[in-house]
Amino acid sequence: MFKVFLSLIKRDLRLAFRHKSEILNPLFFFVIVVTLFPLGISPDKQILAEIGPGIIWVAALLASMLSLESLFRSDFDDGTLEFMLLSEYPLSIMVLAKIVVHWLITGFPIIIISPLLGTVMFLSNDAITTLMITLLLGTPILSLIGAIGMALVVALKRGGMLLSLLVLPLYIPVLIFSSNAVGSSMAGLAISGQLYFLAAFMVFCLTLAPIATSAALRVSLE
């Protein structure tokens, strides 16, 4: 069972590296969206530091959501998803493997580049560290919840808009606690409560999201 998990991760990573745009586009999107805000609001140091955590997190949310297509779309189009459903192994294991890959190619690069964006938004060093921790805890949640939504819309021709309607309300707790943690650490306040919440929410999603996603996939392929 673990073998099928690893081999799917290997296959999907190989596919992702043959399609480098799949890794780079969400990252560029993330950077560009953050860049728009100083241009749209003001380059003022104080204002940007105030709104920076929220903006970076909203951008991460959108980048993760827009990249959800890569999770199941191509597998659905070429029929390999059917083979996954017809495998003797539990579907949720395979789904989890795909979610892990999605996080590795979209969430992880975002974490790596986030200090840069934190700096241009004038966040303090502490806040940048917190930003990275919240991203580390939060982006897996985005991939996990997003997978459920993507599994529900994968069979639809134009599922993109619908996907955002389904998924974004469920992202709200992550947004609230993460951006607040970053803001609080800017102000030198305690942030352990927020981080505990994020960690607990991640574990919660990790246990339930693959099951819900596999149920949704079975419905979508009908």
């Binding site: 819309v153 069979a155 639809l156 819900a212 949704a216 419905v219 009908e222």
Partner: peptide, 14 residues
Amino acid sequence: AIEDPRAAARACAI
């Protein structure tokens, strides 16, 4: 959005 009514019902239940 889902055309087949039975599939739509099951997706919505999830």
